[in-house]
Design a protein around this nucleic acid. Structure first.
Length: 432
RNA sequence: UCCUCGGUAGCUCAAUGGCAGAGCGAGCGGCUGUUAACCGCUAGGUUGUAGGUUCGAGUCCUACCCGGGGAGCCA
């Protein structure tokens, strides 16, 4: 009977049969006349048991010599065994070496952040990082499925942009054939144009912020998904944001429970994320935060301590709306009942993960928007195309942006955003 | 940019101003059910850099470099 080539994740379908697995040696525990080889293949880790009596002498001695992370091809019979991590193990009949690994830098014990980041290309192989990347994939897929199932059109917005939309200090400037261009910090303005063409759209891609932020909640390159919808008001936007976040969390629990358990996430906290989410106006939120013992004056934007205090006070994401206009961008529509307020909403994640969504109803009146651009000292000429959207069939519209890394960090319960993206770009760190 | 903590073996960390050490990893040997296996042995150091104080500095002082965490700003 020829051995079947398969992957570790599917071993339970082959109990009693001979299989071939291609992978890397994760760890070895040898006991004289028996070797226990932990082999990872990307889909999982399986223990291969090699007894000296079952294999030729040269195979047994090869198993004794191979180093951690050497690439190997193993053949063996699949056996259920309670003693094996994962429930099944392989009784090895053959072992072939693809390439012997040099001394592997990452050991079994803890490492520091600097060392791990310098070895990010190898760190990705470790169990926790592997699990986080799979959760990230599930989150991204949930995001796409949510919009695709609801008749949104995916619109890819440009990464090179001609001018600043929210001030130049936080933009990366690049040369562009003798001219200047900037890396995008949001696809929103282009998304608005696309929404006037398609009704409901989303853009999804990397965004760049040149903020000199050196905290666990910041990256200079991060991914953001931004839906934009025509004929909608702030309440409608909040309804969508709420349903969207609930959908992402529960789809991820469904498809990645094993990974969340592996990284020891308290899944019950995620299961509690069900609509409706608490909604409060900015003014109500300020009162609440002050009553919780964290100080804030009306008119100030929330800092990390305020977000954390508010987020910790609830076991669901909190939606804060009707912000003082001074804290928000020029394109947000003002509250018709109170000019001091902007029709914006922030969604703050529980457990101190901070703002995961920022959204708003956009200003749809031509004259008002033009006035705002001038008030913000932005070059009106650069925004003529954007003003055109108000000249030619303007409608109430809006949307929001969700930060993928902050969402993944929250769902995984990991401290630092650097672990939620394969190759993090951070202040003063762009290797590997 | 500011505040704060740190930099000692490949990695993680110890060392009252007085002989620079352990665990892991590596090498060698032992062990037929190990779970970050275990046991024995071996190798491995310009203590971030430059200066200073001192009989004597990893330890105290000054400057600089690098990194972590945080503030501001934000997803």
């Amino acid at each position: 009977m020829a051995a079947i080539e398969t992957i570790v994740a599917k071993l339970k379908d082959h109990i009693g049969k001979d299989v071939v697995i291609k992978g890397w040696l994760y760890n070895r525990r040898s006991k004289g006349k028996i070797h226990f080889l932990q082999v990872r293949d990307g889909s999982g880790i399986v223990q291969g048991v090699m007894s000296i009596s079952d294999v030729p002498e040269e195979v047994f001695s090869l198993a004794d010599r191979i180093t951690q992370e050497s690439s190997i091809i193993i053949t063996g019979a699949v056996k259920e065994d309670k003693r094996a991590p994962g429930g099944v193990e392989l009784h090895l009949k053959d072992l072939k070496l693809a390439a012997m690994s040099e001394e592997y830098p990452l050991g079994k014990k803890d490492h520091g952040a600097d060392f791990l980041l310098n070895n990010r290309h190898l760190w990705l192989r470790s169990k926790k990082q592997h699990a986080i990347m799979r959760v990230r994939h599930a989150v991204v897929k949930a995001i796409r499925d949510y919009f695709d199932e609801r008749d949104y059109t995916l619109i890819d917005t440009p990464i090179f942009t001609p001018a600043a939309c929210e001030g130049t200090t936080t933009l990366f400037e690049v040369g562009y054939f003798g001219d200047k261009a900037y890396l995008t910090q949001s696809g929103q303005l282009y998304g608005e144009a696309a929404a006037m063409a398609h009704g409901k759209i989303y853009c999804f891609g990397p965004t760049f912020r040149a903020e000199k932020s050196k905290t666990r909640r910041h990256l200079t390159e991060f991914w953001m998904v931004e839906p934009e919808i025509a004929f909608i008001d702030l309440d409608g936007i909040m309804d969508i944001a709420e349903e969207f976040v609930e959908y992402i969390v529960h789809r991820t629990i469904e498809t990645r429970r094993a990974e969340l358990e592996m990284i020891e996430r308290d899944i019950s906290k995620l299961e509690a994320v069900r609509r409706p989410f608490p909604r409060m106006t900015y003014t109500e939120a300020v009162e609440k935060i002050n009553s919780l013992g964290t100080e804030i004056k009306w008119g100030e934007d929330f800092g990390a301590p305020q977000e954390t205090a508010l987020g910790n006070a609830c076991d669901k994401p909190v939606m804060v709306h009707h912000w003082p206009s001074g804290t928000k961008a020029f394109y947000m529509k003002r509250d018709p009942n109170d000019e001091r307020l902007a029709l914006g909403v922030d969604v703050i994640a529980p457990e101190g993960y901070g703002e995961i969504i920022g959204g708003a109803q956009r200003e749809d009146d031509y004259e008002t928007l033009k006035k705002r651009i001038e008030e913000h000292n932005l070059p009106v000429k650069s925004f003529e195309w954007y003003l055109d959207l108000r000249r030619y069939g303007s409608v109430p519209h809006g949307g929001f942006g969700l930060g993928v890394e902050r969402t993944v960090a929250w769902i995984c319960g990991v401290e630092h955003l650097r672990e939620t993206i394969p190759f993090p770009r951070m202040l003063y760190r762009i290797y590997p």
